[in-house]
């Protein structure tokens, strides 16, 4: 029986499309599955019994994936389930949770090499946990506050001489219906005057670190691809590089100091990740300051701008994981 690689994502995912082309070029057997087809277009069945090991089949449009054949999974960017618009709000909520339960059961019950397991992703996305581990591993970190307390925010603002930034804690997009985003922003006195709004939702506030450049470190297995993003030449991108015209900024592959390299790999290990994108800042003094780690961070644009072989390296990792039958303790 041929072991296969599974790509779990959405229909509209250009980075996954690049992996499809890469694996096809190499003649590697793979499948692609979109949880967004569940429950209406995709059928999912998990079978358990006293006389057989767990068995699972999933697929859509006559294409069935036998989970027994899957030895490595790239869990990319699945999109939300396709719930029937004919359901009431209560029915949709119930259906959503039932879909989540069966899909999480599928991910957790069957052994494979995961890049990355969704449970690992969920834990690794916690920014307080990231900062806890980063500090423990020797990274320099900025003063950071998670709070819904206006007084605590004011105290941080005072302590940092008014140079702090606001960030969202999740990838949740506020303003999607208006095609608007929340980037990292400097917090000014006018913003602080509305600190009472923190009673409706807490925020993440961080000391603003002076930048010479942003640093995006793509970690694939035990390989690191550090790239400096020269964001400071674009006025729109000085606080948050994503606000600027990213492909037009200089991207320069760099070598990290050995202790930073070691700490990046240790952070991935601590979080149970085989892939991550770590964001750091290089200060004008040449120091490296940790900002965050993205367990499902983007990398497609880095390959297209720098030519670094990120897709090929990730394909190597998936193939190696498939062949070694590496496992994750969640399922193992």
């Amino acid at each position: 029986m041929t072991a296969e690689i599974l790509i779990v994502t959405g229909e509209h995912d250009s980075t996954a499309d690049l992996m499809v082309l890469e694996l096809r070029e190499r003649g590697v057997p793979f499948r692609r599955f979109h949880p967004q087809d569940v429950p209406r277009d995709a059928r999912v069945s998990l079978r358990f019994g006293p006389d057989h090991p767990p068995a699972a089949h999933a697929g859509a449009f006559g294409d069935t994936i036998d989970w027994d054949r899957i030895a490595a999974v790239w869990y990319r960017r699945p999109e939300p389930y396709s719930l029937s618009p004919g359901l009431t709000a209560e029915e949709r909520e119930f259906a959503y949770h039932e879909c989540t339960s069966v899909m999480q059961g599928l991910w957790r019950s069957f052994d494979a090499f995961w890049v990355n397991h969704p449970d690992r992703i969920r834990i690794a996305e916690s920014k307080p946990l990231q900062l806890t581990l980063a500090r423990r591993l020797g990274f320099a970190i900025p003063r950071t506050l998670f709070t819904n307390d206006p007084e605590a925010l004011a105290a941080l603002w005072e302590a940092c001489d008014g140079r702090i930034v606001y960030k969202s804690m999740t990838q949740g997009v506020l303003g999607q219906s208006l095609q608007q985003s929340v980037y990292t922003n400097r917090v000014g006195a006018d913003h602080l005057a509305r600190a009472d709004l923190l009673r409706n939702a807490p925020g993440l506030f961080q000391e603003e670190v002076a930048k010479a450049a942003d640093l995006r470190i793509t970690v694939i297995g035990d390989r690191l691809f550090p790239v400096e993003i020269r964001s400071q030449t674009d006025p729109d991108a000085r606080v948050d590089w994503r606000r600027g015209e990213v492909p037009r900024m200089d991207h320069v592959a760099v070598t990290l100091p050995k202790p930073i390299e070691t700490a990046c790999l240790a952070l991935n290990r601590a979080l149970g990740l085989h892939y991550s994108a770590i964001d750091m800042v290089v200060t004008p003094d040449g120091d490296h300051v940790f900002l965050e780690i993205n367990p499902s961070g983007q990398f497609g644009w880095i390959e297209s701008v720098t030519g670094l072989p990120l897709i090929a390296t990730l394909a190597d990792l998936l193939i190696e994981g498939r062949d070694r039958r590496w496992t994750d303790p969640i399922a193992g």
């Binding site: 206006p150 606001y166 969202s168 506020l174 303003g175 208006l178 095609q179 608007q180 985003s181 929340v182 980037y183 922003n185 913003h191 509305r194 600190a195 009472d196 709004l197 923190l198 009673r199 409706n200 939702a201 925020g203 606000r243």
Partner: peptide, 21 residues
Amino acid sequence: AAAASDPKGLFAGQFLEDGHV
């Protein structure tokens, strides 16, 4: 005093800006 006025909206709402379309 804070309880008397129930704030509407989110702190994050102050930073909403047009995304890349």
